[in-house]
């Protein structure tokens, strides 16, 4: 397997950001967005995920879905590292508004302020929002 920077020819690398603004379970967006990211990892693009607004709830520790009869997909966020998806950005304001802190999250992330996140969004080539 060649690394992306060793590729020749038309191997363009674009910056893809997956923007998550929705809570899990109430709708399927969080789960199916995660499925896109797992597939995208194979394309050796520059992938990052942003969690803001209710999207931060996707990363809440201690999810237990036994009582609602749905699959708990939160462990998958911890598997992302194995897919080389390591850039997980969480918006500080969104956490604070919801009474959450970094300790409440189930995976290591980079917490950043709204302005920094906005600047990061502006650097992307493709923004996929779910």
């Amino acid at each position: 397997m060649s690394e992306p920077w060793e590729e020749e020819g038309p191997g363009t690398i674009k910056k893809f950001m997956y923007v998550n603004r929705k809570a899990p379970y109430g709708t399927i967006y969080a789960l199916e967005s995660l499925e896109v990211v797992l597939i995208a990892a194979a394309f050796e693009q520059d992938v990052s995920m942003a969690f803001l607004d209710d999207g931060v709830y996707q990363l809440k520790k201690g999810q237990d879905t036994a009582g609602i009869g749905m699959k708990n997909f939160s462990p998958t966020y911890r598997a992302l590292e194995g897919y080389d998806v390591e850039k997980l950005y969480v918006e500080a304001e969104s956490l604070a508004e919801r009474g959450l802190s970094e300790d409440d999250l189930l995976v290591p992330v980079e917490v950043m302020g709204r302005e920094a996140l906005a600047a990061l969004m502006d650097e992307q080539d493709v923004i996929l929002s779910f």
């Binding site: 803001l52 607004d53 996140l117 906005a118 969004m121 502006d122």
Partner: peptide
Amino acid sequence: RNTLAACIGHALPGS
């Protein structure tokens, strides 16, 4: 929904 507020909060000046 807060979608417009979220957009305005993240859109850089001039967008």
